[in-house]
Design a protein around this nucleic acid. Sequence first.
DNA 1: TTGAAAGCGCTAACAA
DNA 2: TTGTTAGCGCTTTCAA
Lengths: 343, 343
Amino acid sequence: MAVTIRDIAERTGKSITTVSRALAGYDDVAPETKVLVRQVAVELGYEPNLLAQRLQKQRTDTIGLILPTFGPRFSDPFFSEFLAGVGNRAARSGFDLLVSTQPPGEEEINAYRHKVQGRQVDGFIVVRTRRQDARIDYLRRAGVPFAVFGRADGTLDFPFVDEDGVLGMRLMADHLARLGYRRVACIAPPAELMFAQLRLQGLREGLAEHGVLLEESQIRVSDLTQRGGYAAAQSLLAEARIPDAIAACNDLMALGAMSAAQSRGLVVGQDVAITGFDDIPMAEHSHPPLTTLHQPIYEIAATLTEMLLAIIAGKTPEQSQVILKPHLVIRRSCGSAAQPAQP
Amino acid sequence: MAVTIRDIAERTGKSITTVSRALAGYDDVAPETKVLVRQVAVELGYEPNLLAQRLQKQRTDTIGLILPTFGPRFSDPFFSEFLAGVGNRAARSGFDLLVSTQPPGEEEINAYRHKVQGRQVDGFIVVRTRRQDARIDYLRRAGVPFAVFGRADGTLDFPFVDEDGVLGMRLMADHLARLGYRRVACIAPPAELMFAQLRLQGLREGLAEHGVLLEESQIRVSDLTQRGGYAAAQSLLAEARIPDAIAACNDLMALGAMSAAQSRGLVVGQDVAITGFDDIPMAEHSHPPLTTLHQPIYEIAATLTEMLLAIIAGKTPEQSQVILKPHLVIRRSCGSAAQPAQP
DNA sequence: TTGAAAGCGCTAACAA
DNA sequence: TTGTTAGCGCTTTCAA
């Protein structure tokens, strides 16, 4: 069976305490003992039983990430990159990453509770915030360390990283308006998502500065997927007067919208401009390439993890409330780079 | 602090043994005791300490998934869907999912070793097999339960699910050849990946049946990303005589290849056919939509997890070596649905 | 039907 | 510098 500290103790003729301390690197152990113990440990192929270690230390060295998924299946390039960012940063500090998926709702909070009370994690990374976010309320109340990607309504007394969605969409609106687009539509995420709120506001304000009104009738709510973006765009394009630009609130929906426009025989970037938000790898390789706002997902994930790790360690994170400025990536789907603007 | 079994014992006046058994549902506990204990447990908000439970039971109720990533960052829709499949199926049986990312190599096996010896997981799901797969060798030798997505060279004495890559690419080759394509190129994954081998073989054989030779000079090896597919296609299309069809071995590379063709002013499906493999959601919404081979990733992941769970439980899985037949999804990138074939 | 006691593998006060 | 001892929170013989 597995090698334990006790085996090393027997083999070296020392006590398990001494072995434990030698392995942990305490300096109240004779150097030669330390060497001996370590050598035997290697010989025997010893690996500490983390379960036992954690039970004793009352820490789990694990961080939790519960992905809010709408359907049972999901395929979001955003999350895979985010995951890598969290996982790699965590691993660098010897932390494990416990991942699960759970649709928003009652069960979701139970999943958090369960992991907290079952002492499976030391803290959480929370993603895709809702305006009223029960996860944040719960974690705050329970005193569990956590760091959040996104903000929420109410008091911002928790550590977070967020992109400046208002600014981002203002930049986009400005760009679109300068190109001459006047009849602008929007494919927005469900209103309960915090970033829906912010991005929509940014778009509205940005257009307003150019005297352009974002009409309510030109807003379609969709579920962040290509399929959803496709349906939303179809609905927009089935109207008598179609928009001359569609600003989608994420890339996946924008890509779906492009597909819808093309299925109707429209040339994207010429008959209709379409823009996204996120700059996923696909944005660069779509046809035409997608004008969008870049977010450094991997870095955001790593930063959040670093914050969380600091909090778990009882330290104050160097930075605990970060708002990043997304930058505009102009490609061809808005018609600017290749063709002259549509008046 | 956290509520323990001891608190319940004190509150009910019973011993911790009795409480433990009442909670576990043993039937050598008086019904009224059972009721009382459970009621108090709920009142106090008791949740078992999984660490303690697991240490005692010598099981972790956790399965491990180490994603082989090439760069530090990765964004693969394939993995996010796979992850959801594993996570959901695992959760349904009360299992946790421990995820990490690790580029193939020395460190990778250490990561496996570490999790096994540290008793962090009861078994692994292994993805994206290599022809000589050190992970499989290790797990087999160590006697750790595991289930694999993909096959490997050598003895297939382990449980796996795989798609029939040979058949898949034969179908594709057949389709392409029937459409009249004769100068077919291929964007292949690194040769050490098992599926590269199989898919390439399928393409070669399928074309051969129509008397078409897949020339070595028409094969480009790439890294499974859009960017890689883009570069590979650029190289293919920079030749004096360009291929009339490019079969990429996955969708991401196919999408990158489409982008490359389009950047050179070629019309995909007309000037050049491009096909993929996987049928990721994006395949349906690209422009033109991508002809590809469908794989039910989510179901594969769930099936694999089920197998693994059975093995961990000491049972024999109902099915332990599954080879699925991918089916051809004909869209427009090969020029068949919309335009007449190119002679 | 219940409880005392041992122990899962480890750490850490405390004493020697 | 080392060892004894007492847990971390739980399950499970074994005896009552």
